[in-house]
């Protein structure tokens, strides 16, 4: 009998309307073959993360912009202020993986924070290939379902 294993999915779902997914793909693809990054603004419930807006940010990593990002903290601050003024908050981070899968890397893990959705968009020369969301739980990432439509009544 195999030992009991923890379920490898997050307890939250990220709701990201199709229009925002398309906007995100455009942002990510515009930077290809370099990495793009930004923030997800919305409302965080216990199990449902509602994305209201996707915001691009500057990548300050100029040494390896093809496979690293360092989100400009000034952009974080400005986005946080604008979000709070509307009763919203930063609920997640998005970034692209040019020519790499939409899975967190070791570099992503080193810098991750619990409590945010980490949305990764895989970009290629032919366009955005995949989009997946992850959350840090302890010392590892678990996948978070991405929903396009609001399934609640």
């Amino acid at each position: 009998m195999s030992p009991l294993r923890a379920v490898e999915t997050a307890s939250t779902q990220l709701w990201l309307p199709a229009v925002l997914q398309h906007e995100l793909s455009r942002f990510a693809q515009a930077s290809y073959p370099l990495e793009a990054c930004g923030l997800l603004v919305g409302r965080a419930g216990d199990t449902k993360i509602d994305t209201v807006r996707v915001v691009p940010a500057r990548n300050l990593n100029l040494e390896r912009p093809e496979d690293r990002y360092l989100l400009d903290p000034q952009d974080f601050l400005a986005t946080d202020r604008a979000a709070r003024a509307e009763g919203l908050e930063i609920v997640g981070i998005w970034h692209s993986h040019p020519d790499h899968p939409a899975r967190p890397s070791g570099t992503d893990l080193e810098s991750a924070w619990e409590g945010y959705s980490y949305l990764i968009i895989s970009t290629t020369a032919d366009g955005a290939a995949a989009l997946r969301s992850w959350r840090l739980v302890g010392d590892r990432f678990v996948e978070e379902a991405v929903e396009q439509e609001d399934t609640e009544p």
Binding site: Y69, L77, E110
Partner: peptide, 12 residues
């Protein structure tokens, strides 16, 4: 005073 988490990572 804002505590702003450093946000970083990368594809590899």
């Amino acid at each position: 005073i804002y505590i702003v988490p450093a946000v970083a990572g990368g594809g590899s």
